[in-house]
Write a protein that binds this DNA or RNA. Structure first.
Lengths: 164, 164
DNA sequence: CCCGAGAGTGTAATGATATAACATTTGCAA
DNA sequence: TTGCAAATGTTATATCATTACACTCTCGGG
């Protein structure tokens, strides 16, 4: 049951790489990669799917950490601000960034493909400053700072074999 | 204080037109444009901005209608399903469609420009099947059914003169 | 040495958004 | 006129997110 991305991969290595990259990024930028923040990112990477803040709390409790909502939201804010995770507005949920190293430093705005059947989420484009939006914005005299692009539909697996 | 769209216009006529268009559309498609639905659309048109469901309830109460959340949500679901209104995921809020007549019949997925300072929302493109997303989806074997595109930034007025 | 500022955390309470469930009413058609 | 489907009224509850405040820890200046 893949939940993020539509292809198989070496998930253990994937997590290790991502955590290492995050650690380096924080060190390089003077950010505090505290236990709580580290743990929330690990959870997102491990579960490998879009998770609500409240889905994260039990995992924190398992680790003996405080499991009140602000703990999760504060860690998520940090991760999102620094491009280590993203919020899926459509789902009010969060995912680990698929490839933080590919981006400069701070937050960025990828596009997401969301399967409405199995809930899998794939991060699709590095930067989603879709040209169409840019053109429309320019016409309107609007200064774009951030773009949310979320496509909802069917992933290859669900399109082929609708779940029972 | 324009709240939807960034330009002035004859708002009274705008509402009348929109309501007439909605009425015709519902008649043509055998949809029940009931008082509650009609009233909620009127409220959205009148206020002319992105409104939460709970912002709508007091207006319903003023009219002596039931003001429980399900009333608003049911009407909004109807309006959104039939392309007469849209949900702004980023804001958890709803706006009347700027131009229902321009679309076939059902729901459609425009792009929105959202001013982070004054909250104004402008509906930007008729169809937001952004080519970039389409290409990425095709590459991933993903079937897109609906695309949310929401740009956040500064409207021309706020970019020029930041509110006090 | 100490102490004051800033960042992070722990915790309780509350606010904001959305839906479930079920009884009742309405419109329409067999 | 009876019966169904759609819509509505109402209560309760689920879900998502933030406020507020006390506490700790670290680090640099006096």
């Amino acid at each position: 049951m893949p939940a993020l991305g539509f292809e198989h991969h070496d998930h253990g290595a994937c997590i290790d790489n991502a955590m290492r990259a995050a650690t380096e990024r924080c060190a390089a930028q003077g950010l505090q990669f505290t236990p709580a923040r580290r743990r929330v990112l690990e959870i997102l990477l491990k579960e490998h799917k879009a998770m609500g803040a409240y889905d994260i709390l039990p995992h924190l409790a398992d680790d003996g950490m405080s499991a009140q909502p602000p703990v999760a939201y504060r860690a998520l804010d940090f991760l999102v601000s620094n491009g280590l995770a993203h919020k899926i507005e459509r789902l009010n949920a969060y995912v680990a960034c698929a490839d933080p190293a590919a981006h400069g430093g701070g937050a960025h705005s990828p596009a997401f493909l969301i399967c409405r059947t199995c809930g899998a989420v794939e991060e699709a484009l590095a930067e989603a400053d879709a040209s169409l939006v840019g053109a429309a914005a320019q016409r309107a005299g609007f200064t774009v700072e951030r773009v949310v692009i979320e496509a909802e539909g069917l992933c290859p697996l669900c399109a082929k074999a609708p779940p029972a």
